[in-house]
Amino acid sequence: MRARFGGLLFLALAATLPLWLRDPYFVAILTSTGIFIIAAISLNLLLGFTGQLSLGHAAFFGIGAYTSALLSLGFDVDIGLPSPVVVDPKPVWIAFFGAVVVSGLFGWLIGKLAFRVRGAYFVIVTISFAEVMRMVALNWVDLTEGPMALNNIPPLSVLWPGHGLTALVTKSQQYWLVLAVGVVCYFLVARMVRSRLGRALIALRENEPLARSVGVRVTHYLVVATVVSAAIAGAAGALYAHCVRIVDPDVFLFIYTVTMVIMVVTGGKGTLAGPVVGGLIFGLMPQALRGTAPPEVQWIIYGIGIILIVFFLPRGIVPAFADLARLRMPALRKPASLVR
């Protein structure tokens, strides 16, 4: 009950923020933080609920960004067919959902391929996948413009009563867009982990042989989780493309995956609120440190921060606080639910 009230309060604060905080720069930072939080929510589905550490998650994010950008800009590319493939610019929302679908398809492919192997192998396959994607984005200049980046990507637009089709260009509009997509993704994941699929995934994470023996179709569920996770990451990438309005091959960099992992792990993997809390901390911290410390010192602090969190808060911030609250107020103690 309290948690729900806190959640609603948080949502109300977040939704009205651009009205009482009139600093466009801060709103812009919250927007880009929000995009990464969505990506972290998708990673949490894999890392937190299935226990599979995907270190190529930036690949799905980047594929979403490139797909949406390319569909909305249009492209023509010669792939050895008799005539070059020509795609005319599509409306931005079609591009957006195209990105979700394409990312999901790649998720299926990687899920099928990677779940033949587990543990360290899975990690390395996902890293390699992201790196190959980066090389393609860097070198397939006809399609992706390579290091020259895709530029002038159109913004997303909505039907606004009284204004017709309005392009979302101001910082506040983009903020609300990201918030709306974020809320949808949050509840989608919440719904999933509470469903039969979610229970299967958790059973799998906790004891795979046992889950198998009682008839849980392991590979099937893992692939479904990967597809959904990749699709949400793709949506985050598409938001990125239409808000930042420039996409370059560096979106595939390993460091972005690492940023997502840090957000999930510090917040608390396997908790719904974890990626949001971790995302806010690690999205806003660079701005707080900006000016006080050079970027490399910030990153040194991050690196040491990860180590300290693993050592002292191995389950993350959200579970630690939940424990603390339960200790303080015995009335709130209740049996640990299946979804931590």
Binding site: P24, Y25, M148, A149, D250
Partner: peptide
Amino acid sequence: EDNKSNPKEAVDAAEKLILR
């Protein structure tokens, strides 16, 4: 501002310089 040899970071740096 350091644009980190990257076009997206160059945009971020410009926005920071202008807005902040």
